[in-house]
């Protein structure tokens, strides 16, 4: 029974957090879109296209954050057999894949007018594409086994192996020559972008994070109900066999 104690406690906590996260996401998206589209200045080099940044950069941060959190969950699942860790990884994966896709496509839409190309096979873009495939691979792998325990185990190992990609993405702009501009927010010596652009970016980043928290809670609840259905079916099969 102690196996279910943690999910039960989690569900109580999640019910408290969900309305706040959803509300914060709505408020921050409204404020962030206003600031990003109307209140912030055009860039002196990139003109209006700089507004793509307010989608592209939060999506990229979330893509890396979600993957890192899934890798931590995978380690927790493998070492301590925490029952919620695998559930979290399964619930978060489609969201992380969505953020990565957004980052790649908006980056392309930004690159076309500013770099003169939709895509280059340089380190930053390629490592981000690999991250997208890691998400898809994880989602395919966990559902590829008849026994969900084996699927989860294989998925956790994939997550841990793939985490090597995260520092490669982060430092790719420093380690290799690339069209992609270097970090301008999380860098030594503080952000190098003007507060008029930093604020909308921060608000949009909070909106993305709050959105993720709200939706991942919904998805975890769904996964837990699915597990309960599975357990119920197993006991019914067992009682029918008696």
């Amino acid at each position: 029974m102690h196996r279910f104690a943690n999910p039960a406690r989690f569900l109580r906590l999640a019910a408290l957090i969900l309305p706040w996260a959803a509300g914060l996401a709505v408020v921050c998206f409204a404020a962030g879109l206003y600031m990003a589209l109307l209140d912030s200045p055009a860039d002196y080099q990139q003109g209006q296209t700089v507004r793509i940044m307010y989608i592209h950069v939060p999506a990229a941060w979330m893509a890396m954050f979600v993957y890192t959190s899934m890798a931590v969950a995978a380690a927790t699942a493998l070492v301590w057999k925490h029952p919620l860790a695998e559930v979290y990884a399964r619930a978060a994966a489609p969201l992380g894949a969505g953020f990565t896709l957004l980052c790649l496509v908006t980056g392309s839409l930004w690159g076309a007018p500013m770099w003169g190309t939709w895509w280059v096979w340089d380190a930053r873009l390629t490592s981000m594409l690999i991250l997208f495939f890691l998400y898809l691979g994880f989602m395919a792998l966990v559902n590829a086994f008849d026994d969900p325990e084996r699927g989860n185990r294989a998925g956790c190992i994939l997550l841990l192996v793939g985490v090597v990609n995260i520092p490669i993405i982060k430092f790719s702009v420093d380690w290799w020559n690339t069209l992609h501009q270097p970090a301008s927010v999380f860098r030594m010596g503080g952000p190098s972008i003007h507060p008029d652009m930093l604020w909308p970016l921060a608000v949009m980043a909070i909106a993305f994070k709050a959105y993720f928290v709200a939706v991942v809670i919904v998805r975890i609840r769904s996964e837990l109900v699915a597990r309960k259905i599975q357990a119920l079916r197993l006991t019914q099969v067992a009682s029918a066999a008696e």
Binding site: G47, Q48, T49, I55, L102, T106, L109, A112
Partner: peptide, 19 residues
């Protein structure tokens, strides 16, 4: 959007769609 409407609005539209 300074002549870049197609790129900017499709970025925001796609974000809304995916989320």
């Amino acid at each position: 959007m300074g002549g870049h409407a197609a790129y900017i609005w499709s970025s925001y539209g796609l974000a809304a769609l995916v989320l």
